[in-house]
Nucleic acid binder design. Structure first.
Length: 749
DNA sequence: GTTAGAAACAATCCT
DNA sequence: TGTTTCTAAC
């Protein structure tokens, strides 16, 4: 029992109590992942449970990957049969096997937010809905919430009777669902909903999985929505060995349908549940933890618990208010630079957290100019970029001919001279004949009044048919290469020659390497398998530990992570808590923001800095914001830095006509970096790349190279340092800069 | 049918 | 400020 000796008594109880329902209320940094992994190990090694019967379910691939790794390390034999997966991947796996019992094809496609929007637009047009009055997005929101709550189109319709607006939504929902079925596609929410439907309608399938998953563990239980709740309830229905781990204080996904009652009422649904609280925090210093406790204490209706730690008090929390967002960013970047220079931290120890993705831009500019390696998590997903979606649409079309959306996306990309008028005729014909869009294309010659366009369509169809016939013989990567060749997609971009086109080509190269990586990681790689993986990756999944770059992300993305040195930026009323929650008439909205703040504070291990700005540009307008109310909930004695004067201070003054640079010096505290803010030279076009390949340089001393931001220049020096190169370049426009090759992405010209 | 430039418009957070 | 949609001219 050696492994378990490192656990504290509460953790041990959670690990050893294997039979029946268990609720583990695990505060931030209290070692819940350790509990989960050790529990899996205990089941297998001490209780003799077949690994095959053990399931651990999470929300992100990253969390699942970490858990898998740790279980593999601890379990001697058979750990690979433990089912460790996310909710969505789990459901996809089940549906790929059995969804034909619900009348879908098992090669269904998964629609992302973009696809949903395109589809919805189409539906609104068809139902004669004025999208100026009723927005597509609001319909999608309504549908998504309905699905989170397991409300079917039929039930929605019943409930809507008598209410004009609701009836309209019901009609849209019905149409939307019918269209998905026609395209043999599922949206994200459907993955869960359809699995629950399957279990409810097919006792044989349910029984099959109940038998398999005799011991179930659920991570981040406070984030589950109603559909996920039923999914778990059904699965655990037979053996009832269900262990859920969560923290009501970290419930921050109400907007996504998370139902906090799932965790708050667990004991009512499972009266025999054992409840275990983990309250010792191993992550943060005393000061940081006190701040977190005092902030969250302002919420009402929580499960009583208070974190404590044996760690030392540590540094005070550094607070600073700055004139504007630029100075805030400058200070933070300067502070990181300083701490790294002093050897206190590496770049990889530092994280900047903010409320909205838009806030990342200012930091990015500073990092680029300062030549500090950084990585932004979130924002536009790699797989949502135009060029990537185009190529994926080709693969999808080859994989599933019923996915009209994919076909429409690429039929005229690259330009084939097939225009809207022609497509409308094809569409009409398809509807008339009850064909899918693609099948209508195949019969182009039959379609009246389509004329010469049918020749162009024929060429496209032939291409797709040829590719389909090759699926069996070619690897996915070969398939992709051939698509790129035959369509001339990259060639067209090369011809264009703009910076943007070059960036796109880089992305396409990265897509190719991702395909190759997929083929290497999988025993039996398939086209469908790749598309599936792509549909389910989140940006956070690609964050790898041990890489030395500063990480920037939203507070939401940061949940579950920890960093030695954390910055909470933009702590202003109106930003955090957000404007939306301040004007909301539901007071619980503010509480959710406060929980988000709690999550943010508890990410920090040793150093925490809180910053805000007096004025800030939001969508071209200057806003003047007060210091966040959450900051005021932290007592002064825990704060260091330039604090005090701010609290009594009234609103910021009128903006003078001066530029930011000039007003800067008078308020700028501590670390005034020498380089004043430089206006950006070009449109920022940096793409954070996740490739980890060992780099080789395509240029040497004296070569001409191009940098995304600095333009062209001449290489004057290359110094090898570890697994990277430090390159010195004399740029035509901005002078000499030193940078790391892996980060600067220099291109030989 | 395609393109570029102008006008309109937008309010977090995400698997 | 940044992105999407509309319009007009090729």
């Amino acid at each position: 029992m050696r492994v378990y000796d490192n656990l504290n008594p509460m953790q041990q109880e959670a690990v050893f109590h294997t039979e029946g329902p268990v609720l583990v209320l695990a505060g931030a940094g209290s070692g819940k992942t350790r509990v989960l992994t050790h529990r899996a190990v205990y089941l297998i090694e001490e209780k003799g449970v077949n690994p095959w019967h053990v399931m651990a379910i999470t929300f992100t691939n990253k969390a699942a990957g970490e858990m898998r790794e740790r279980i593999d390390k601890l379990v001697g034999y058979g750990s690979e049969s433990v089912w460790v997966s996310t909710f969505h991947s789990t459901c996809v796996r089940i549906l790929r096997r059995y969804i034909d019992r619900l009348g879908y094809g098992t090669n269904f496609t998964i629609y992302d937010a973009d696809d949903q929007k395109v589809l919805m637009k189409d539906i609104c047009k068809r139902l004669n809905i004025d999208t100026k009055v009723y927005k597509e997005k609001s319909f999608l929101g309504v549908i998504s919430s309905a699905k989170d709550e397991l409300v079917s189109p039929e039930e929605f319709t019943l409930r809507a009777a008598g209410d004009f607006a609701r009836e309209k939504q019901a009609a849209v929902y019905r149409e939307y669902q019918a269209e998905l079925r026609k395209n043999n596609a599922l949206d994200f929410d459907d993955l869960i909903v359809k699995t629950v439907e399957l279990f409810q309608s097919d006792a044989e399938v349910l029984e099959n999985y109940q038998e398999r998953f005799r011991y179930i563990m659920v991570d981040e239980y406070q984030d589950t929505n109603t559909a996920q709740f039923y999914l778990i309830k059904l699965l655990a229905g037979k053996y009832r060995n269900l262990c859920v781990v969560g923290d009501d204080d970290q419930s921050i996904y109400k907007f996504r349908g998370a139902n906090i009652k799932n965790i708050l009422n667990f004991e009512e649904i499972y009266p025999d549940a054992r409840v275990i609280k983990l309250e010792q925090n191993y992550r943060s210093t005393g000061n940081i933890l006190s701040a977190a406790n005092l902030v969250i204490a302002n919420n009402v209706g929580r499960k009583a618990k208070e974190l404590w730690t044996e760690n030392e008090e540590g540094e005070k929390i550094d607070f600073g208010q700055y004139e504007n967002g630029y100075e805030e960013a400058e200070h933070i970047v300067g502070d990181i630079q300083k701490k790294v220079r002093e050897g206190r931290y590496q770049y990889g120890d530092c994280a900047i957290l903010y409320r909205t993705n838009a806030q990342s831009r200012l930091f990015e500019e500073k990092f680029v100019v300062s030549n500090i390696p950084y990585r932004i998590v979130g924002g536009v997903n790699f797989y949502a970029r135009k060029e990537i979606k185009d190529l994926l649409a080709y693969l999808k079309t080859i994989d599933n001919g019923m996915d009209d959306l994919a076909v429409r996306r690429i039929i005229n990309v690259p330009k084939r001279g097939i225009g809207a008028a022609t497509l409308n005729r094809v569409q009409a014909y398809a509807e008339e004949q009850g064909l899918s869009f693609y099948n209508a294309l195949r019969m182009a010659e039959e379609i009246p009044s389509i004329g010469k366009a049918s020749i162009k369509i024929r060429a496209f169809v032939n291409f797709i048919q040829t590719m389909r016939s090759k699926v069996e013989f070619l690897d996915v990567s070969q398939l992709l290469q051939e698509i790129i060749e035959e369509t001339g997609y990259v060639a067209e971009l090369e011809a264009e020659g703009s910076d943007e086109a070059r960036a796109r080509i880089e992305n396409i190269d990265e897509l190719i390497s991702k395909v190759v990586a997929y083929e290497e990681s999988e025993e039996t790689p398939t086209l469908g398998g790749f598309l599936e993986e792509v549909a389910l990756v989140a940006d956070i999944d690609s964050l790898q530990e041990g890489s030395d770059y500063v990480v920037l992300m939203t507070l939401h993305s940061a949940k579950g992570l920890e960093f030695p040195n954390v910055y909470l930026a933009g702590m202003e009323d109106g930003i955090f808590p957000s404007y939306m929650t301040i004007i909301s008439d539901d007071p619980s909205d503010i509480e959710e923001e406060r929980r988000l703040c709690y999550v943010g504070i508890t990410r920090a291990m040793k150093d925490l800095s809180i910053t805000c700005a007096k004025q800030r540009m939001i969508r071209g307008e200057t806003q003047y914001n007060k210091v966040s109310r959450f900051v005021k909930e932290i007592p002064r004695n825990l704060l260091g830095g330039m604090v005090r004067q701010q609290e009594t201070r009234a609103e910021a003054q009128e903006p003078s006509g001066q530029s930011f640079r000039q007003t800067a010096s008078k308020v700028k505290p501590v670390f005034s970096t020498r380089n004043a803010y430089q206006p950006k030279a070009y449109k920022s076009n940096s793409f954070a790349s996740s490739s980890t390949d060992k780099i080789t340089l395509e240029y040497t001393n004296g070569d001409r190279v191009r940098h995304m931001k600095f333009g062209e220049g001449t290489v004057t020096q290359i110094v090898e340092g570890g697994r990277d190169f430090e390159v010195t370049v004399d740029f035509d426009r901005v002078g000499t800069k030193k940078m790391f090759a892996s980060f600067a992405k220099l291109k030989k010209v």
